[in-house]
Design a protein around this nucleic acid. Sequence first.
DNA 1: TAGCCTCACC
Length: 678
Amino acid sequence: MRLVVSSKSLKTLLVASKDKPTIAKIHALMILTGIFGHGNSNAKLILSYARLGHIESARQVFDKSPQRGVDAWNAMIIAYSGRGAMFEALSLYHRMASEGVRPDSSTYTVVLKACTRSLDLRSGEETWRQAVDQGYGDDVFVGAAVLNLYAKCGKMDEAMRVFDKMGRRDLVCWTTMITGLAQNGQAREAVDIYRQMQKKRVEGDGVVMLGLIQACTTLGHSKMGLSIHGYMIRKDIIMDVIVQTSLVDMYAKNGHLELASCVFRKMLYKNVISWSALISGFAQNGFAGNALQLVVDMQSFGYKPDSVSLVSVLLACSQVGFLKLGKSVHGYIVRRLHFDCVPSTAVIDMYSKCGSLSSARTVFDQISFRDLISWNAIIASYGIHGSGEEALSLFHQMRETKVKPDHATFASLLSAFSHSGLVEKGQYWFSVMVNEYKIQPSEKHYACMVDLLSRAGRVEEAQELIDSMITEPGIAIWVALLSGCRNHGKFLIGEMAAKKVLELNPDDPGIYALVSNFFATARRWDEVAEVRKIMKKTGMKKVPGYSVMEVNGKLHAFLMEDKSHHQYEEIMQVLGKLDYEMKAMGYVPKTEFVLHNLEEEVKERMLCNHSERLAIAFGLLNTGPGTRLLITKNLRVCGDCHEATKFISKIVNREIVVRDVKRFHHFKDGVCSCGDYW
DNA sequence: TAGCCTCACC
């Protein structure tokens, strides 16, 4: 019996084959039947081997082909480029000419793709020039590839130059521009290009919409995002898992978690990325508990968390001080996944925000590759723990590497100086930032400097600095100035700062307390009454303060006057006993931190029931003598609680660490590491 | 033959 095998059927089999032995059999059959060596059969074989990762076999086919058409060369370049072997891909491309094979449109496209993968702008531009020389300058495939090269290398100006000159543009060219602009932080320009595209009556598909959704995400334009979503539904544009995931991401990043969850729930097909998008949305918006619950849910649906979703878990852990879970996630990533730059930075941040600065440092010292963000994270870690000198020393080490400090590095460094009271160092490095690094100071940088100068009593200099600002100073700056004025009795400047603070109407009751205290210190009772009036009007709607503490691997959260806790009675007994001992040692409740019109005794009781106080008492009840307590608070620690915690640390002979929204307070033996200025 | 999704510091 004679077996008839057609070239076409073998090629179809090749595309469908899922393992090397099958391909090898078809390969053998091709040789036996004489198909091998004709047409582009060798190219198909090369691609099939490469698809399954057998690059050596692919190369053997290439080397043993009796004649190699341009398809075989292209296939081999794709094979190398897909494996990240850029050098081999490029050398093949260079060899083609010497072997008398003329590159075609595909060759330029795949070589440009290879250059894009390795971000090799120089080779890419050279390839593009050669493509133009050979008459492929108007080819939309080559054009889209060069636009993508520029976009991925962050050269959108260059991309725009090429795009403007293009004789023909297909949908992919438009999309590459829109996506490229959106991903390079030029979201407005992305929208402009889309408008141009509409004018030319080019219909957008899901991928174009995805670029626009990303633009909405960065611009924070949820309204526009919503209208794009509606447009896709009306126009029946297919929303695949990628487009749906970016919708989830867009809604979540813009704070619309219900909408994000709603899109997510309606997704028929989900993947780990869509879960991660939702989880990170909750974590980034401060809903640590929901984020953690979602990770449990995703596992029950059979999805295994990857390093991206676990980074969000770490973020949630750092928010609430969940050291135990953070530690186990760290271990899991190290053992099972890739512990590269992003997860290691998240781990550093988690340890430092959970109070373990030394663990953060150990991880930082062990990682082999440190990028800008890892340096920023470790510098910030020392800053929030009040170690300005160590932050500076790390900054010096960073300057010895190739990594260039950015605005965030200086924000962390200056904040470290302000938390450590290093005024001259702050001034010096602020001027270095502006003059040497040409970084335009932002609101955060100014706030650090104003804080630094004001706490040293140099409020006039602080005011001069504020006057030199080009942008309108925000609340953080006026609050910093006001604190200094209050502490140093500078009433004239302070009054102006207080008025500014009230105009800006902050959300934080602690800030109203500061303003009220300032006026009380200046004996300006009318203004004190005015602040109370504002508080009464808006104050009751403020974010409720809560404190979180981990005991035996479980998190316990406390709200102010929280009676729901099963140990509430015991907690109140502990607090009562402590109150008695504290008063005997000279503690006087700072009732000015309660701004309601209440009797003194009631105010005192309210102070006593602040969430951080409840958490401390709970910690004392449930941990052994001498154990360090770590409490995480969502707002700034209250001034009276700060005073009380100092006394408590001495009475119970414990180290009490409180992390508030700004920094760490290490209370030990009646003293706080912040030096009573925060 | 093409273009596309999630994560770290401030």
